[in-house]
Design a protein around this nucleic acid. Sequence first.
DNA 1: AACCAGGACGTGA
DNA 2: TCACGTCATGGT
Length: 240
Amino acid sequence: MQSIQNKKEILKSLYPKLFEMYGAQGWWPLLVQKEGQYVSHYRKDQNDCKLTEDERFEVSVGAILTQNTNWKNVEKGLGNLCKYNLLSLKTFGAATEEQIKDAIRCTGYFNQKAKALRCFYQFLQENSFDMLQKNEQMASRDLLLEVKGIGPETADCILLYALDQPSFVVDAYTRRFLIEKKIISNCASYQDIKVLFEDALPLDVTLFKEYHALLVAHAKRFYSKKEYGVNDPLLEVRKI
DNA sequence: AACCAGGACGTGA
DNA sequence: TCACGTCATGGT
């Protein structure tokens, strides 16, 4: 078992290695139309551009739809919402529950997610993105967590990628990777892992965005459930 | 034809 | 608090 300080050093030194391997990931993706189809676009150059209200909404909707689901399905669901002209703060409120379910069926758990989207939209009527952004980060996080269907990871995705607040996102891939590298035990909580990153790193929004995306990229390549850590070139990390 | 994917919630102990 | 079942479609 290594010291907390040692773990932090490892997490600090891991980022440039991942960046060298995979480059900027440009998360969070936004939809663009290509040959009549809606596809995800990863904005690798303009990472710091300010999002519009509707773009913040799109990011948040994507964060809810991607819960335990392949992004490809989410891309379709977002495209459907877009086709129905529902992926906007001005139009979503008019959607019926059936319309929403129809659009997002391909993302799985569509009953729960349809409810979550409507709860979130209702929430936005009383708490604007603008207010959430100006608010204290922890206060906004607590508010988001009160919405049915928004848990810790989704809340952190919205904070980081829609509101540009330095809230580190922890997902299943990150957990798997850290456990395999023996940086955390398999009983570490979401909060344990989140705090570990946030204590180890400077509170930099762009860094947090890229780091999480890079961990997903790396884990997708080497930590699918079938091949758990085989051939991971980043074995030097395992300094016991 | 099982198994998995950028989780969250309700329940019972 | 926490382990466990449930929610569900689409790709391999």
